[in-house]
Design a protein around this nucleic acid. Structure first.
Lengths: 330, 330
DNA sequence: TCCTTTTATGAAATCAGTTTCATACTCATT
DNA sequence: AATGAGTATGAAACTGATTTCATAAAAGGA
């Protein structure tokens, strides 16, 4: 495997000169530059990233932490991040935290060791106090998930408005008994909190009070959605509509509801969140809140690259719009 | 950020001794080992992977090349690979080739530079002649996609049998006019070729000859599936069943067929391939050929680790069984 | 007791690059 | 002609680890 010394030997120049050619330094005669380039091409030389990293600090690699890559929301987000990064000559390393604190911390450590130049976190498992110290080693950007902290850059969506729009849409369709189904718990900040707030606000505005039984937390999968329907069927006071924080749960609800002879949207209206591909696959097709995943990925990479290039630590917050897509389930 | 020299200074020992503790070398007094461990813990020292790598150590990283991470088949495969690798203390880097030859080559180069200890390829873009030379730099394993080459390890499925089973299932249901829809072209080897062979074999056995118009190639997405239905509707001689090489295309077929008033499976039977989550979401639910994705990922990691540890290059081939899941679309 | 083997440690070389420092040459300006 | 700025290049130091080589003490065997 050829090294920079081989190139130097072949061209009769020093390693320094070869290195300068590689890194596009000024003050190299074009004649020698040609010579080096040609030799590099000839012997198939490719600089060793470990060596560059060790000395030169930048690895041209950014890390992305996702909870689960099989979740289409995240795989689409990662895809958009990867595309944009590649355009800018950055490599992406994808880390799956599986909602595990230890794994998340392990990945953040790679920032410390300059394995990655920066990190995009699309989920947060540890307390902010635990994560914050890592920011001294390199830029960290929160994408999608976020915390109430002004010291960190964020690219996020107007979740509150999204939930508000969705809930109000159901109200406008004549519903009063609206269930609410979320992936998270009831923390005092972050994505899910904002959604809760949006839902509450819409309900309050129309003087509606939901039955506490209609609030479902920590529902993530299609299976979870099916279970929600079973629970609802056993209630005396049943909701006529459900706002779900995830398209997958919404899909599960639709499938199980049909199985039990319920007509959608007449007997039960369902609205999802994300606009995943499956929203157009379920029958009836799912009304949902579309998150601009691609824009979010692109913006995150743009911002992170800016952060990596700026000497002093900059903090910026970007909020992207969100949109209701009406289909057949409401 | 602390280095090994810091640990050496604090403990009053040499870098060599500290390094030996880190790497569990013999001949270290337990008293000094304790001292080093304690100091490392105290200052939050974590060895710099670039430096280790440079010196010719393994990086404990394996690379996985996928064409598209948004394709659920690959995201599930990557997920299983990642889980198994993490268990074995390996990190996974995911590369998206986007079906681009250049990108694939770029990733293979990382093997050359010891960025990764081994590579799992789940798709192949370049000719085998182009890829083969990279195998001298480290183990390469073909997972899912493969070539007719005995010099490389493979973990693959019995695609031929899968296609045969699917086609025969349709024949047993009374169909004679069976269309065939594949993602690939008609190459003379590999995954898609085996499937074609399986389809042909089943048709031949029952003395059936498909109309050449019923063969659709290079169909990947839900949209592609919808288009297939449109094409079929404009034919005089229409097939009564379709074997699709992908659940997504099959889903598109079902959606568009229903849109046009066709009853499934009565007017058109559809069978997919993969058993992706959407197979249970479409209505009617999709009959499909289940690929044991998790087993495939686990087996691939197991085998690759074996290859990385064995001094002489070993070549092994694993073939996993495949299974028909009958649902409502046939 | 002497010699060999085992145990334990450190100095220095090494990995493949980048960067600093030193140097020399070419012009332009005073 | 002397000075200074700009251009072009190489030698050597440096990045943070691992490994080889050298050495010394302790243990075991004759």
């Amino acid at each position: 495997m050829p090294t920079i010394s081989d190139v130097a030997r072949i061209t009769g120049l020093s390693k320094s000169t070869v290195s300068r050619v590689i890194n596009n330094h000024p003050y190299i005669s074009s004649q020698k530059r040609e010579k080096v380039l040609k030799a590099m091409e000839e012997i198939g030389y490719y600089p060793n990233p470990s060596a560059r990293r060790l000395r030169g600090h930048t690895s041209n690699t950014i890390g992305v932490i996702v909870p689960r890559i099989v979740n289409p929301f995240f795989s689409y987000l990662v895809n958009s991040i990867e595309q944009e990064a590649f355009k800018n000559n950055y490599q992406v390393i994808i880390f799956q935290s599986n909602d595990l604190k230890d794994k998340e911390l392990y990945f953040l450590n790679l920032l410390k060791n300059r394995q990655v130049d920066g990190i995009i976190m699309t989920s947060i498992e540890n307390d902010w106090e635990t994560i914050e110290p890592y920011m001294q080693y390199g830029p960290v950007l929160l994408c999608n998930e976020y915390v109430n902290q002004s010291s960190v850059s964020k690219v996020r969506l107007d979740q509150k408005k999204g939930a508000y729009m969705g809930t109000e849409h159901l109200i406008n369709k004549g519903h009063q008994k609206i269930a609410y189904c979320t992936g998270g718990l009831f923390a005092g900040y972050g994505r899910d909190f904002d959604r809760n707030t949006g839902y509450q606000k819409a309900m309050d505005k129309h003087q509606l009070t939901p039955n506490p039984n209609w609030i479902f937390i920590q529902r993530h999968s299609i299976e979870d959605g099916k279970k929600v329907v079973k629970e609802i069927l056993s209630m005396n006071d049943k909701p006529t509509a459900i706002f779900s924080g995830s398209d997958e749960v919404a899909a599960g609800i639709i499938i199980e509801a049909k199985e039990n002879g319920l007509k959608i949207p007449d007997d039960l209206a369902v609205i999802g969140f994300d606009d995943q591909p499956l929203a157009e696959i379920v029958d009836p097709k799912l009304t949902t809140i579309k998150q601009p995943i691609d824009e979010m990925g692109i913006k995150s990479v743009e911002l992170l690259i800016q952060m990596m290039n700026s000497k002093d630590s900059m903090v910026e917050e970007v909020q992207l719009p969100i949109q209701l897509i009406e289909r057949e389930s409401t």
